[in-house]
């Protein structure tokens, strides 16, 4: 294991507020340790900016374990960077070499307005979930957990969709800025499970309609979303969502 520090040239998007004009700023860091995470590299940058009396770069982050979905930046044109199935916080600098140049940008989508620097407003995602991404079961009213058996294969497939962390990389990567993968993940999870059946039609219509209201684009099968998804959510979910949607529309809610 090498501990030789690297020099990294950064181009970082700076924007002081939602309506301000943004621009790229260049920074060179010469003490980047290969074992650092990508966000730790940004910590180093921010510590330096602070010491120099400049305003640090704002970026969202919380768990730094790839599960909360807070972080997410476009790194050299790819949402979450070069390593597959990896959120920005889990990307490590050992994937870069001395002298590399890295451009860092926020998610760019009409439905995700920039708050500041690399931070965007993803509340549109919450509103899609609020429209129907749940089973309406009141606390305390549930039957015994073993009342309805669910085959392992079905449970596993539902889990694969449920693993979505809501980071928004799918939107950032999509040429149409579509939220289809995100929305399809929840719809597919609940459509697979017996618990999701009673509200199945109502759910898909409400969520898909809300997705349109929020200003996300349509899906035109580029597959970029699946490629950048840190949780490997399958694009098959989108096909499923479409079938569910048309079935619901044609057969009535």
């Amino acid at each position: 294991m090498s501990h030789d520090n690297m020099t990294i040239h950064l181009r970082v998007w700076r924007q002081s507020g939602p309506n301000a004009k943004g621009n790229f700023e260049q920074y060179t860091l010469d003490t980047v340790n290969p074992h650092m995470s990508f966000l730790e590299m940004l910590d180093v940058l921010n510590e330096r900016l602070t010491k120099e009396g400049q305003v640090p770069v704002e970026f969202d982050h919380d768990c730094r374990e790839g599960i909360c979905g807070s972080c997410g930046v476009v790194i050299n044109g790819t949402a979450h960077g070069p390593q597959q199935r990896t959120a920005s916080c889990q990307l490590h600098m050992r994937h870069y070499k001395d002298g590399d140049a890295i451009t860092i940008e926020p998610w760019r989508a009409k439905a995700f307005p920039i708050v500041r620097d690399l931070v965007v407003d993803r509340t549109a995602f919450d509103r899609i979930q609020e429209a129907g991404g749940y089973v309406s079961v009141k606390t305390g009213s549930a039957p015994d957990a073993h009342a309805v058996p669910i085959g392992k294969e079905v449970a596993d497939e539902a889990f694969d969709y449920a693993a979505c962390i809501g980071c928004g990389a799918c939107v950032a990567a999509c040429p149409n800025a579509s939220a289809s993968l995100f929305t399809a993940a929840k719809i597919s999870q609940l459509a697979l499970l017996p618990q999701g059946q009673p509200e199945r039609k109502r759910r898909v219509v409400a969520m898909v309609d809300q997705m349109k209201v929020e200003g996300f684009g349509d899906c035109s099968n580029h597959g970029e979303c699946e490629a950048v998804c840190p949780k490997g959510i399958s694009i098959a979910g989108i096909a499923k969502m479409r079938r569910e949607y048309f079935k619901a529309i044609l057969t009535g809610k």
Binding site: Y134, V135, V137, T139, G140, S141, A142, P143, D144, A145, V148, P149, I150, G151, K152, A155, D156, A158, F159, A162, Q189, L190, L193, Q195, G196
Partner: peptide
Amino acid sequence: DQCVAQGVPFAREYGG
């Protein structure tokens, strides 16, 4: 019980 009713995909055995 509550979580299963919400559609939480807990690990299951082949028997369901």
